[in-house]
Design a protein around this nucleic acid. Sequence first.
DNA 1: ATCGTTATTGCAACTAGTTGCAATAACGAT
DNA 2: ATCGTTATTGCAACTAGTTGCAATAACGAT
Lengths: 146, 146
Amino acid sequence: MAKRYSDLDWLREQGYRLTPQRLAILEVLKQADGHLSPTEIFNQVVQEIPGLTEATVYRTLNFLAEQGLVLVAHLGRGQLVYEFAEHDHHHLVCRNCGEMQEIDHRQLKQLYDNFLDDTGYQINTIHATFFGFCPECIANNRSGSK
Amino acid sequence: MAKRYSDLDWLREQGYRLTPQRLAILEVLKQADGHLSPTEIFNQVVQEIPGLTEATVYRTLNFLAEQGLVLVAHLGRGQLVYEFAEHDHHHLVCRNCGEMQEIDHRQLKQLYDNFLDDTGYQINTIHATFFGFCPECIANNRSGSK
DNA sequence: ATCGTTATTGCAACTAGTTGCAATAACGAT
DNA sequence: ATCGTTATTGCAACTAGTTGCAATAACGAT
């Protein structure tokens, strides 16, 4: 049976190159347990690759996101954050307290299927952020104190 | 019966102030038929309000988005764009050709209800962008020319 | 109509992110 | 192991977006 290519082999096959910069950035994201901002990533990776520039970090993050190895999220407050694309999931962010909760990809699967039926579009991103109010903030608000 | 407040009256009641800057920015977004970038907005509004600064535009857009009068979208390519919150809708963007399609809010309604059941979160944003491949690009790719 | 409170603005200095271009270095072919 | 092609990097100059602070001006109260 044919050997299953790793993402990295696949990239090389597409003509992209596996530079130390790219590998190191990906590694940092893999180790991290949550989202990292470009600056946080730069600060970590520059320790291993002293010549690294921020331009390269931004370019690499865009590249990795386009290739699907990394997920981008816009968790309010403007800035984008990045995360290793380990398992498909999304975020629910409370507009009030900032509390965040992960939601499983399967909950969106159904929706994607609907899109496919209705429009012919085949969705493959995989990382959405929804804003709303968490149960606690709803409760506090409803009690109407003051 | 009680008079129904407009969004603007409501803002004033919250202690926010209706400055000419805010009104003009909102007006430009209302007139525009699609998404505008902060810079596009600035260029239009500065004509009416010569002293206007870009800082004010960014602050106002954040403010209007938080208040729900304006929708923010992240249509790939990093930059955020803004749009008057006229009707709830979302976007489907083709990763390949950039083609864009609106999808009605009601398609997501069901999903929001599920979130509420499962997590207690009450979703209220209302503007998501999904990335995938449009029917045409899927067809072209599948034909395997080349 | 005037006044006081204080949210909002403009300013200026900053941080975040992008881009064109020449130099570098992956990587397939020899 | 060496070479050539060309994707990627670093550099530097840029554009985009943010923030603290003093001055301004909305707006409710008189």
